[in-house]
Design a protein around this nucleic acid. Structure first.
Lengths: 386, 386
DNA sequence: CCACTTAAACAACGCTGTTGCCAAAGTGCA
DNA sequence: TGCACTTTGGCAACAGCGTTGTTTAAGTGG
């Protein structure tokens, strides 16, 4: 790491704390304490951020006997990102500001199977409509549109932005979605699985930041997004989170994947026959495996099936985890909750694919996983400008 | 991060490359290329490392038409670490140099149930005998003994160095092994689970570095050590790797843990009735779950049961993973291999608990997991000395 | 009104990696 | 044998990072 990298690293550190503080803001001295830097260093960094329009002063705290602390805040409209959720039958596009607030959203039916040109055309139209609604003229914002994050159902390569083997849509196999869309829009594009995007969005809201959780999505299929130590975990080939086809019943019933006794098969079979309690119990057993293996802090449930009967699933999964904690005698059970799913969660999380690097939440570097190259997300806060 | 931290970060980066290069060595320009630093920066850093006795010149490469490159090498005896493996019935202690070579080893029977004072007494004796065999007078080495890494079977808190609930040995519950041993020896002490230590030791030898693998240990019980993206993954409470009590057979046979259909129970039952093929198949199913969930590159098998019939287990687990790869159609199967187990692997890995930080392989920071404090591992290479 | 406390900017500084230049140490052709 | 060329790596000067020391700003409390 060299000096410019150090500079943008520390700037990102400060920006992340500003974002976490939200509208309440945070003082320079608190920033110094949290970053481990000296107050003077924080003053310099925040002065740069203010000059760049990324941060601003916002009132002051009550005095504790001396000069009151000045509160600093992130300037939300200093930059925006588009989040795009391409689902099998629906397209959701959102415009999210630096603070993570969704300022605009659009939704339209989509035939994912219609092929790349049609889908890209539809997506481009939605993005254009999103980014240019008066009175907000985006290009005027200090940093304008930082990029587009795209969430897609199937297996894919996050590093190269290439789709493969999207279940039921062979025409997308090997399609270089990132490069094509980036070329078309003239913006950086980041591609990831829908479950990863959802988990990333949830990670942003998690308190305390930096913990570990699993997001389990029970919809058409069963998938997971893993956040370990505050960072989204993808694995070297973006294959992490294959939760649905974990074997839970050795030599059990056949699954569509060709295996036997997969969680997904057991769970969906129970749902199909209306036995949600059993579905929740199966899901809970899978969650317990995951909790034990990865020592995570929290389990979040989402997806259409869960949303239909949140309480049944939260209670059912929670019961299995409570039983696990009781057996282990290792303190309180891992809490379970339903992910706040307003139907936009995946798209919101997709936008975070672009915003996360600004705040220093870089991808874990895996050797061999072709680095994102020049089409990657916007560089750190310490750009060449000014 | 401030400038001293940057300095030791880059020094550790270079040291890690020197270690990886091994006896073959590496030139300054290669170091520059690999670190992303300029050749001049590498020259300065290596000059410091040479002045501190950590690196040395070792011959030169063949010329390619100009001045031949000077090869740099890590100085192995610039520092040592002790690795201590406290097993249920045996104590293994090794002395490992900076390059990772085990230069001395001792083994003695141990009654882990005899209680802390007796075990600590025995361990101290072995360490003293290890560190002072003529003609090698350790304190003369530039950095001498860097610390002691301790591997222990049961659940524990790596961050605080406290044991808890070691199966079958309630007298150790809550014992602050790290602080007590550190006080006694006057050295930094790091404590971790035996499976984690083994995985760390294996990670050192893994090529390419930076990959992900799971080490599955089948002995008295069944446990796992996870290396994700080149770093040992412990989770916030050092609980990661609870592999043995993953449910693999919903409503299956009772396990000693109180659960049902745990991998460990199924696997050991098969071993007990001599059906090693079935044991391997069960283990393979668990491994397949893990591979799918974490997208890891490699599975390594170890432990007494595996060692007795390596081929059966490697083939059996490999067959399940090959079947998984075939179903997914996602390229080649994840390779399976037996971990080279000379019976010292855990102790060797324990020594790496101390050495890893020197090479920048810091623990993943988990909020709330009480940081190691002053008794933590030796500071970075850029110490205050000289 | 004034002493005291706390926050934050200003100025000087040490140390980082970088850039520009040059000496060192080879190869290869005449 | 000699000289041009290539490549490595040290020396010196430099820009920029966070730090230290000091001053100014902006409050509280007797």
């Amino acid at each position: 790491m060299n000096l410019p990298a150090l500079r943008s690293h520390n700037a990102a550190l400060v920006l992340d704390l500003l974002r976490t503080a939200g509208e309440a803001g945070i003082s320079r001295l608190e920033l110094a304490e949290r970053t481990g830097l000296t107050p003077q260093a924080v003053s310099k960094i925040t002065a740069r951020l203010r000059a760049e329009g990324l941060a601003a002063e916002a009132g002051r705290r009550a005095s504790t006997g001396g000069k009151p602390r000045t509160v600093l805040r992130l300037v939300p409209d200093a930059g925006y990102a588009v989040g795009l959720h391409l689902d099998r039958d629906e397209l959701t596009a959102v415009l999210v500001d630096l603070a993570g607030t969704t300022v605009a959203a659009r939704r339209t039916p989509l035939d994912f199977g219609a092929g790349a040109p049609a889908v890209i055309e539809a997506a481009s139209r939605q993005i254009a409509a999103l980014a240019l609604p008066p009175p907000r003229a985006l290009p005027l914002a200090p940093r304008g549109l930082l990029g587009v994050g795209v969430a897609v159902p199937g297996p894919l390569d996050h590093g190269r932005g290439v789709l493969h083997r999207v279940t039921g849509f062979p025409q997308w196999d090997g399609f270089a979605l990132r490069d094509v869309l980036s070329e078309r829009l003239g913006l950086p594009v980041v591609v990831d699985k829908d479950t990863n995007a959802a988990a990333l969005g949830l990670a942003l809201r998690a308190r305390p930041a930096g913990g570990s959780f699993a997001y389990l999505h029970l919809g058409t299929g069963l998938g997971a997004g893993l956040v370990l130590g505050g960072a989204l975990y993808r694995g070297a080939r973006t294959g992490a989170g294959e939760f649905g086809h974990q074997t839970l019943q050795l030599d059990g019933a056949r699954c569509s994947c060709g295996g036997r006794g997969c969680i997904e098969a057991l769970c969906l079979a129970a749902v199909a026959r209306g036995d949600l309690a059993q579905a929740a119990r199966v899901l809970g057993a899978g969650a317990a495996n995951l909790v034990g293996l990865l020592d995570i802090d929290r389990v979040l449930l989402g997806g259409r099936v869960v949303a239909a009967e949140e309480d049944v699933f939260v209670r059912g999964v929670g019961a299995v985890l409570a039983e696990l904690a009781r057996r282990e005698g290792s303190g309180p059970a891992v809490p379970v909750a339903a992910a706040v799913g307003d139907g936009r969660a995946v798209a919101d999380g997709a936008a975070q694919l672009v915003l996360a690097p600004v705040f220093g939440h870089a991808d874990v570097a895996f050797p061999g996983a072709g680095s994102a190259g020049d089409a990657g997300a916007a560089g750190g806060a310490g750009g060449a400008g000014e």
